[in-house]
Design a protein around this nucleic acid. Structure first.
Lengths: 118, 118
DNA sequence: CACAATGCTATTTTATGTGTAGCATGATAC
DNA sequence: GTATCATGCTACACATAAAATAGCATTGTG
């Protein structure tokens, strides 16, 4: 599938409203996970693959392609890293970490230690 | 597909880390779009369907099921609405609206008026 | 009672994602 | 210099999820 571009119809959305294009992009499997893993710094293809629980190379490559076209990720000699746009995006995404831990605790009865170790 | 639950393996993630379970949930087609549309208030099934560009009822129903199990959406006599968890989640999601418009402008050369009308 | 809207379910078709194999390239190790 | 290894992918074949459409039971309205 082609990477979503605001202004053009995207998967599930025909209008191309920017927020829907963004939701389409981030809604693809592992898209947010890849951005999440890149927040700690640049990463090679294989090492990114390992961080993403050995995601299949075809899907990783496809997600990287989407994220590169969206100017969120770029390739360098060190492998892949977040662009400036990627940095501003992960800044918005970061609060989801704490939110998800509280959610796991309160909604799914995770214990403190379960949340801590995960 | 079953709804993702922190602590159990989810689509694409075997560990069940809360953030990955959340990314799995929000990464399903229209999941973020549905939450987004519910931010303005409760909505009936058909009206939600219309707001989501006539998404197919099967996928809407499936997403609502996931979001209900995750305690993000609940059913009331008026139709569906965000729970308290849903409200805290949409608070984190809301900044993506402005981000996506800037992104559309700067990365994809949208004009002010294009962004405004969409 | 006819008619329309609502809230779905079922079914088929198509698009996506998963898993695995493997190959070209470059860096070490001997 | 060649055997070995890691890397960065590509290419399938198979499984799963999403899209599109039809339609039905229920409730409300004139």
């Amino acid at each position: 599938m082609s990477a979503p571009v605001p202004g053009k119809p995207v998967r599930g959305s025909k209008t191309g409203v920017p927020i829907m294009a963004l939701f389409d992009l981030l809604g693809r499997t592992w898209a947010m996970g890849v951005v999440w893993q890149l927040q700690e710094g640049p990463c090679t293809f294989r090492s990114l693959q390992r961080k993403c629980e050995n995601i299949s190379p075809s899907i990783l490559n496809s997600r990287l392609k989407d994220l590169k076209e969206a100017a969120i990720v770029e390739r360098t000699l060190d492998g892949y890293r977040l662009t400036e746009w990627g940095e501003t995006l992960i800044a918005l995404l970061r609060p989801f970490g704490a939110w998800s831990r509280e959610w796991a605790q309160k909604v799914f009865a995770f214990t403190d230690s379960e949340v801590a170790q995960r």
